[in-house]
Design a protein around this nucleic acid. Sequence first.
DNA 1: GTCTATATTTCGATAGAC
DNA 2: GTCTATCGAAATATAGAC
Lengths: 215, 215
Amino acid sequence: MAPPTAQPEKRPQSRQAARAQTESAILTAAQTVFAEAGFGGATMQMIADLAGLPKANLHYYYATKEDLYRHVVQDIFEIWLDAAASFDHAPDPATGIGGYIDAKMEISRRHPNGSKVWASEVMHGAPVIQDYLESTLRDWTDGRIAVIQKWIDAGQMAPISPRHLLYMLWATTQHYADFGHQVQTLNGGKPLSKAEWQTAKDTVKQIILRGIRAA
Amino acid sequence: MAPPTAQPEKRPQSRQAARAQTESAILTAAQTVFAEAGFGGATMQMIADLAGLPKANLHYYYATKEDLYRHVVQDIFEIWLDAAASFDHAPDPATGIGGYIDAKMEISRRHPNGSKVWASEVMHGAPVIQDYLESTLRDWTDGRIAVIQKWIDAGQMAPISPRHLLYMLWATTQHYADFGHQVQTLNGGKPLSKAEWQTAKDTVKQIILRGIRAA
DNA sequence: GTCTATATTTCGATAGAC
DNA sequence: GTCTATCGAAATATAGAC
């Protein structure tokens, strides 16, 4: 799987800090293992080994495997929503959508495992976070659709379906995380360099921004 | 999971036909179960129940769970490659890439489970089909990149990175299969209607074809 | 709070009658 | 080729000493 990592430093500290540190180590290890093996393929033993803890300690902090998984998925969802900031208060589509692409591509680069856990959860019918899809995500989506529609009505961009544009933004940016292994294999087996990431970002932005600009 | 389905009809027929029918029923059930539960989450019992067969019969046709899974993934890969036909011998980018988008969107609509199994396999590091990525897929990709580059050199489209354009095509079209559950939830819980599928197709084609056309 | 040892369940795979 | 019954391995979860 991967070598043990993220051992919490053993400095004298408050119990609260120790607890927070252990929880964080467990969550980080869990995110990696769930991303690499899926929920069904992941075992508590793998997560414990990666976190450098006995298996029983995981059950002390999180009652069940599903409980731990739920926390991992929720953490990821927070990160998704934060990228929305780029969208709001933007004066025009190029700024708003271009900034959103930048933010989402950066998340794919820095949190590929989180993206994979989310993708896996949704692909399997969202058994754990269905309520989030129906409440928070739906509200967020409706809000962004309204923003895009206003741009269209103002003649600032072409009259395309805002909803499907959003899906395109999610798909293209998350592809570099979810299918990162395939991208790397087709890149000669080497991870994308800084320049190659920039090319990816520029290509996505150029095609989409040119694709939606007013005729 | 899902109600049993795809019982082979019990007509008098040759042994070969009976075998082919049973194998097909197993593969269809396996594709559904692997898509819904992932490799680790799937059990031979689930697949057997869905196929309407005793669990032992699965091991008669496929020695191990991994052997069965391998066949499912290979079947999907064939379908991907067939969509390449739209690409070749096209006189211009709009025809070639537009046709490819149509073909891939149609695959997402008709074979969402296959797409999910492929996505899951790649997300987990392609443990089973890594050799396909490094041989067949790499060759296919290099060939398509050459075609696109020729269009660019001929001034028929904008000078964007052909490789990342391909990734965009894969991402946007497969999103409607892999994230179909999310798309359906954001569609009010109802599957996309025929008209909504057409809107999705048109939006993807319009944005990408406008995004790459020569300036 | 942490750890070792173990109970309990579940799953992949097989044996063997038909 | 098909099925019932079962083995053996592996995983989740817990008990209980420290």
